[in-house]
Design a protein around this nucleic acid. Sequence first.
DNA 1: AGCACGCCGACT
DNA 2: GTCGGCGTGCTC
Length: 747
Amino acid sequence: MGAARPAKAGARGEAAPDEDAFFPEGAPLSALPALPVDKPLDYLAPPGGVRAGDWVEAPIGPRRALALVWGPPSAELPPDRLKPLARRLDLPPMTPETRRFLARAADYTLIELGQVLRLASRAPGLREAPRMRRLLTLGPERPERMTPARRRVIAFLEAHDGMPFEPAELARQAGVGPGVVKGLEAAGALSARLAPHDPPFARLDPAFAPPALSPAQDEAAEALRQSVAARGYATFLLKGVTGSGKTEVYMEAVAECLRQGRQALVLLPEIALTAAFLDRFERRFGARPAEWHSAAGDAGRRRCWRAAASGQAQVVVGARSAVFLPFRDLGLVVVDEEHDGSYKQEDGPRYNARDMAVLRAALGRATAVLASATPALETWANARAGKYRRLDLPERFGPAVMPRMQAVDMRRHAPPRGEWISEPLARAVNERLARGEQSLLFINRRGYAPLTLCRGCGAHMGCPHCDAWLVEHRLRGRLVCHQCGHSRPVPKACPECGRADALAALGPGVERLAEEARARFPKARTALLSSDLAQSAEQLKARIAAIAAGEADVIIGTQLVAKGHNFPLLTLVGVIDADLGLKGGDLRAAEKTFQLLRQVAGRAGRADRPGAALLQTYAPDHPVIRAILSGDEETFWEREAAQREAAGAPPFGRMAGVIVSGPDEARVWRTAEALARAGAALEQAGAQLFGPAPAPIARIRGRFRVRLLVKAPRGAPLQAALRAWRAATRPEPGVSVVIDIDPQSFL
DNA sequence: AGCACGCCGACT
DNA sequence: GTCGGCGTGCTC
């Protein structure tokens, strides 16, 4: 996310200057339907009039759509051609801040403005009247005829001190039939009132249970508190390893936000992690926040959306799409584990919730907090450039931030053919076994073996849809393509030459490594952890928890172990192939490997009991390996940033990936070349175009794919230029051109 | 998002 | 000759 400057006029769909303009019945106005239109359409105000920001129902073709009153009419059509809006909806109006945010988000992500409104209104039942229910309390009168059943109802209500009940619930609790309650109400002994069906969220108390903070935590918390209290824009990078207390620190920012009477949003990358977070939240503030994620259900989403819009929900905790909720007054956005790839929406409208969070804070005079132990390169670069304020949390229990890191030079310690655990690593594991401690053997490759080769004719088992090799999954008895998911049974004989028993499995996967570990450490209890072995997310979590609690001595795992769960008994991490991922054309390979290996190695030991990590490598002098060994991440990031600039690859900030794909290779290539030729138009706008790369054309899921890259200096109108450029080139039939504004996807 | 319009393939 | 595939465009 680039600089967070205040809103600038001129962007498409900018909120009208007259922010709460009133439009009396019949007056022309513009309103934005929640469908993929790229600008508001003109309508006439409905009976009773409307204001900018009001939710309405707009006729669109033969249908009616949810829409938002945007501002004065564009006057592109004469007023006699305009249709009147159907009606004003009983929903809290959208604030000018949120409207400006939606406009800028559309501009930044190249998503149609109406589609962004749709993201902001994805809750069920918005066009229906809010559901109400009848509640009964004790009325002023007593009934003339008193019966035992009636007495029970009255006594029950008296005992509950004015608390209201639904009729059916009251009858059940008082142990009477529904007729008794009805009779009492008719006699005037009970009075009824209507209340919203969705109960309000419990009030949160910022003073409920403030934790004792370390001096370093308190310093960071104070910086955040001051920023929230100042009610202006700022973004912080809150950096600290697991266990440094990041969560406690940003919870204090939430507390200050509550004291300010503004709303806070906490984005979490994984729904699976929310339950633990919610418990923690409740212990701090005495009640649970509103939740926003797909698993919350229709009722939950409706309740959360309305409470966010009305301001009743003080804090919303949610997945990435929560960033588009129409908050009434958002004062703080926290993005936890900001480097996490799941903040990126890849299907349908493409956006990165982390970037949207920063944009939203900038336009709403709010504080954004990006929390991570391993920030994304672009976040790190933004902090270095002074756009984000950086807060570093040291380890609470002393300087032992990372485990002792050591390389095992595989050129000197090569294991025998068909094995992958070196002697030094085996020794280290045996030491742990003797002490009753856990070891983790890490290999970032699922399955048994990455390559199956015929010893007879040399044929390798490739995917019929991609160029990728098929990976043998021995536990499933299948060959699987990790690119496209295609799978087939493991053949008995070579499909090329027909020779039986000639197929050889080459290279290690996690299943094979587990086999080797069991043979190598026969007395140890081994456990295999791989995402494709789990039946369900729940089951996987339970399994990880059991292993973390000590059910295994040697864990053999894929990158799944890098995230989430802590392993308190773990004191050794052995990285089987630290070089994996450093090869290949991915510009982000070094950065990704660096982060992954640090995260995995960081699982070893705890702050008070540092562990060790052994990296098996054939290239101990590779800069990435050296950076991981030295732990000097600042230098590493500096180098990565500089190298990208030197290579002419877009550095940071304003850039876009352009994905050209289709089923016909020649058509995809011709379209990519046509786009490249039209790049002159981009260059006039100060942008540069890279590609298409001369490398062989990629095949993914049966479609050919070519990538182009566009970069523009800060301040260049990249979005507008991209729009014009794309419009100027007609893709060949069947070819699609997708512009991806987020850097993570294409680097 | 729907829905109509429109231009090329296989068919009673 | 037509029926129908879904690519493209429009909705105030």
